[in-house]
Amino acid sequence: METLTFVLSGTVIAATPLLIAALGELAAEKSGVLNLSIEGMMSLGAVAAFIVVKNTGDYWLGVFIGGVAAMLLAALFAVIVLFLLGNQVASGLAVGILGGGMAALIGKPYESATVPPMPSFPIPILSHAPVIGRGLFDHVLLVYMAPAIAVLMWWIFKSTKVGLVLRATGESPETTHAIGYNVLVVRFLSVLFGGFMAGIAGAFISIASATLWSDGLIAGRGWIVVALVVFGAWRAERVALGAYLFGAATIGQLLVQSIGVEVPSQLLTSVPYIATIVAIALLSMDGKRIRLNAPVSLGRVYREAH
């Protein structure tokens, strides 16, 4: 494997789960709901998918069940914040803890077990190209689906009525309600979608990239997902860009070490987090821009007027 091939393939493999989960979170946040339970949902998705694959060998069933498992957790979160008017920060943390605990408990018999990696889907012709062939076009299907979903969501937000309603719900739930849409239903569906995507992201890690299960497998990636959405200023195309940058930073950090450049490794490990803070600051600095993109009602409890 050449260096460039590795950088490309390593980047997309590291970025794919982040992107999938971040797109889900983007939908939820666009509708006005901040879901901080991504880490727990990814863990639950990872373990559910792993168990399915271990027992049936059916990878797509695993992906689906992983998504559904996390979606059920997301449903619990949605009920609490939407119908029971729970604070979104606290509820997200609580449901996240719950999900992490459930994943650890369910996965205990499978601790350190492995599955064969999900079969890859080399793209005809392209995958035979030098360097970029193996780097970009010889992966599992989910790797190509992630940017496709990003494009789809960009288009939905930009040009469709569904996107408009979703955005309006996040901007001004009262108006959305007034023009005849049920705010709670819109938000509920967005959160479910977010959960499903987080579950798939977890499944990708456990059955396609790491191909093993162990408690703590997600190792903080759920928090990076939350940061990515802000990093991307609530726009699908920028979230995608952010995810690949983040993947590249992760890979770069390890590559720099393996080449033998001397930088404190803790500093390298911190680089993505520092970059996120800088990005958040830069993005937020331009007040106009942030107001254009950040859902105004994000994080606020919405209670239907009479």
Binding site: M1, E2, T3, T5, F6, V7, S9, G10, I13, A14, I205, S209, A210, L212, S214, G216, L217, A219, R221, T250, I251, L254, L255, Q257, S258, I259
Partner: peptide, 17 residues
């Protein structure tokens, strides 16, 4: 002590070198 995806990325980085 424990971050399997990162361990695997490190392994691939070394292979690429």
């Amino acid at each position: 002590w424990f971050d399997p995806p990162k361990e695997q990325e490190a392994a691939r980085a070394l292979i690429s070198q």
